[in-house]
Amino acid sequence: MTHYLILRVIAKLMVGPIMLFALYVQFHGDFGPGGGFQAGVIFAAALILYGLVFDLTALRRFASLELLCSVMALGWLLYVGVGFATMLLGGRFLDYDFLAADPVAGQHIGILLIELGVGITVAATMLIIFEVYAGRKIATEGEDDA
């Protein structure tokens, strides 16, 4: 893809806005349509676009598989962790009311954290799926060369 200048320029321009849109969907999920699932996929889409245009190795330079796996695990931990936190604070599992002194504020914080966990996990998982599938080809080609 290195020859397609237009593609490269436009992709570069697009990546930022897509990520921004992902963040919007993520944090607006509290008030309107949106949330972690959608935001995660959109965020991952930005990076996948980058990977498609600028080659997998470029993507891997800052989002290696190992890192993504850890990020995925962390997002997941965040989700379950909130559940445990509410329990430790005296509520039930995932009862956000207890996250803050004011139940309404607690609900805000809770849903925000949960969706963040979901978003992180989904984004990381999508990227992992992409990298693993795309990387499989590189691995087999490498074997052929050797």
């Binding site: 796996c69 850890s70 695990a73 962390l74 445990f84």
Partner: peptide
């Protein structure tokens, strides 16, 4: 909760 720890 323990499952992601193993992956991490």
């Amino acid at each position: 909760f323990a499952a992601p720890l193993c992956a991490l």
